[in-house]
Design a protein around this nucleic acid. Sequence first.
DNA 1: TTGAAAGCGGTACCAA
DNA 2: TTGGTACCGCTTTCAA
Lengths: 344, 344
Amino acid sequence: MLPPMTDAPGRPRTTIVTLARSAGVSASTVSRALKGDPSISPAMRARIAAMAVEAGYMPNIMARTLSSGRSGLIGLVLGPATNPFYAMLLEDLVREAAARQQRFMIIHAGPGAIEDSTAEALLHYRVDGCLVTSADLSSRAADICARNAVPLVMINRIPRRHASAVSCDNAEGGRTIAQFLRAGGHRRAAILHSGPGSSNGIERERGFTDAFADDRARIVARFDARSIYEGGHAAGEAIAAMPRRDRPDCLFAVSDIIAMGAMDALRAKGLRVPDDISVVGFDCIPDGARPPYAITTFRQPVQAMVRRGLELLAARIGAPELPDESVLLRGEIVIRDSARRPRP
Amino acid sequence: MLPPMTDAPGRPRTTIVTLARSAGVSASTVSRALKGDPSISPAMRARIAAMAVEAGYMPNIMARTLSSGRSGLIGLVLGPATNPFYAMLLEDLVREAAARQQRFMIIHAGPGAIEDSTAEALLHYRVDGCLVTSADLSSRAADICARNAVPLVMINRIPRRHASAVSCDNAEGGRTIAQFLRAGGHRRAAILHSGPGSSNGIERERGFTDAFADDRARIVARFDARSIYEGGHAAGEAIAAMPRRDRPDCLFAVSDIIAMGAMDALRAKGLRVPDDISVVGFDCIPDGARPPYAITTFRQPVQAMVRRGLELLAARIGAPELPDESVLLRGEIVIRDSARRPRP
DNA sequence: TTGAAAGCGGTACCAA
DNA sequence: TTGGTACCGCTTTCAA
């Protein structure tokens, strides 16, 4: 047994019951008064509120959850926090959620898949809902959520069954970038993608290819850069090693972190960016804006995505019958110095 | 095999009671069997375990917490996740905690102070303990934890009253760097610190100054870079603007992110690093290792810090009367190319 | 080795 | 407008 949590030795923790006793009313009255039930007289409400403050009363969420079934906890499945994009997401997420009185239980923040045991923790804690950003939720975990009627919202992911989603219009972003490069005179592109498991990367590449390739321009190479710096670096080295006449004149990385790796590798091999080869990324992470990189990229509306995601989730927590919904938000190209620009 | 749809209309959710009924035993027996109480016969234990799996039973942590007083939740107060150092910390933290069946409720992950309402959420959720990394916990919040006997462990912070702490030996790190620079022939140092609120920065600077300054060498300037890239950048510009003869020959930034900003600014003004001025950082974040920076720095033993921190916390959760403890872990210098090295 | 029963701190329905 | 009361799901004596 744990020692009782007391504010002072011998004095019992303030609960609704102690409050009720010292106010000379019933526990139910206190409960109602505290949540502003209009059926309690204003005078009583004020009196109890004052006593609560005075006694340092703190509601026990566990007890509330047990009887009401709502925990105020959201399960958060986050991609690798060391990827600056997820770090941005996390900051915004925590801030927005706090403003809505929601808290996150964070159950994943690294690379790789989520263990089932980790996913089950979500249900143990009776999370009201679950937010998934990019890292893949196993279908078993998703099934568990669906069966237990835990609403699922994915941010920055293509929706799956039993889930709502909000993401940036990735295909449109890819298209915009392709048009920009075409206008800049590029005709031979290499794509640094993030593998078949990344729905975002696939969409971006699809949009890019659609708008870039025709009878005068084409995709000359593709590399799997796994959404990490090292992957981009390896691809950059491979590109630098290509015979000069086969080399692409521009490079589209499906995320900035990949682009950064590629740029460093190209330069280490003596190639100039953008003079010898243009590089474009995606995401608009802060690191990519700094002088050594100054990456031309596509900004995802992170804050809006976070806000909409939380809204979708809140709505579904309140009304589980709501149908799944996906929302697509428009981003914008950010032109810096890593790619040759169109002539004015 | 997936669990049956326990939430199907009309069919009750699997609880200890439903389990007990269908096993023809009492709820207490099920409770004990499930946690491997040796006083339950092995046969019974096995039978109940099998039924639990078959029924897809998930314990309700809220109920368990209510009766046992232990939630398995740790409150996490994290510094700004967009600072790569905290991102590294977060990844390790979540991984280590999951292995110990602990989950984090994340209540802060941005810049700035923690709102009291946010801190109080910790208590509402009856967290077993609280882990604080760098971001300042208001003394009010700390008091609340102390009153409620919620153990507090700080990682990467100087301990405060009512808290244990684990951190890197910052002063020693500062000293090591100073010795390295002195050996490299540097005599005029500038310090880019992170303000009076950062105990780490203060320790690092103290160690550095102790080992650097004497009658042949001195600290020629100090700048408050607020632990952010932009702060380092501003300081770098100020240094570049100094008359040549007043300029420092080396620069100690109390964190890598500051050093990166400074390097970019110095170079933008035409100064070469390390030829015109050496730059050293602290933390060893991945970004600092990349070619444009290749920062000479001091590596904090992050993984060990995380592990020890969780150990300290677990011990105090089990035995709240344990005295506060601070542990200091030794880091190591990482020599790269941003600072002139000693002649062999 | 097992069962009965009393909470843990709230919520919510039914009376008064 | 208030009080009484029956849970929510699990843990933990105390008895049998």
